[in-house]
Amino acid sequence: MTIEVKNIVKKFGSFAALDNVDLKVGKGELLALLGPSGSGKTTLLRIIAGLDWPDAGEVRIDGEDALGHGASERHVGFVFQHYALFRHMTVFENVAFGLRVQPRAVRKDEATIRARVKELLDLVQLDWLANRYPSQLSGGQRQRIALARALAIEPRILLLDEPFGALDAKVRKELRQWLRSLHNEIHVTSIFVTHDQEEALEVANRVVVMDKGRIEQIGSPGEVYDNPATAFVHGFIGESIVLPVEVTGGSVHLGGRPLNIAAEGAASGASKLFVRRHDMQIGPAGTGSLEGAVRHVRSFGPIQRAEIALTDGEGKTVIEIDAPRDRELQAGEIIGLQPRRYRIFAAQE
């Protein structure tokens, strides 16, 4: 099933939670809405589900106008951050709920419902918990039950609101991979909301980066990471070093001193230079376009993370870089730095 969102506007008072958002989701996609809190991603998800209503715009599910229908008529599976399992029902009854509340005319008989619930509990590998109550489950188990419950109604699309947000790091990682493989198995068009870039990049086919009620970029995980469209995306995804620079006629200046890098078509004026932490090449003092004193080094795994006070400009800028451990850095050492890959964006007011 496809989802189409056109010119959605949603205001809470004078605050625009969504500001003219357009989005198309193809059949069988697993899409991530990624952004900081307050970026409007959850609001967008709730509007698609019918739990919130936009002030203007259109939502089409499979070409059909969705705004004319309430949430209960949209056949949309929704998974909540805090699971929202029915606390007074067993796991079995939770999963069966969507089947039991169907209108009498289409409701399945008890045996069919039982078989279907059993099938779903097998799918989420928790059939042995059928008679427990939600309070007796771990967070990861609860979220899998919530997913089984949402799938029971054979939803046209599946929406997940920060599905792993309330779980601890290890369970979150496991569930991520599990969701990925589950999606490969059932292929229902899915959107999940997250503020965790790693989660979005690892799980989704496509990532939609949002900020302040607007979509900043839509692309594959590789695209948004390697080819960020805006300064916000570059800063939000992956760890970046940001330096305030001045672009004048094709050359780049930091604190009045020209840097030995090309402006690559950036417009003249106050700008920001973005470099990934691991894209800063280190060399002996005097080489490279920047120079700085190593203040502090921490080594873990294959990299060393160094805090470096730049000697350029006012000398107050401190950056963090990730360098391979082939050449161990020492605190106090002066080194040269050269951005291997970088992007320049106009500084926003």
Binding site: G70, A71, S72, V76, A84, F86, R149, A150
Partner: peptide
């Protein structure tokens, strides 16, 4: 209101 929202998204009517 989360449990109510969950119920509605599962197709339950207001009374249900």
């Amino acid at each position: 209101t989360q449990e109510e929202e969950a119920a509605i998204s599962l197709g339950a009517s207001g009374l249900q």
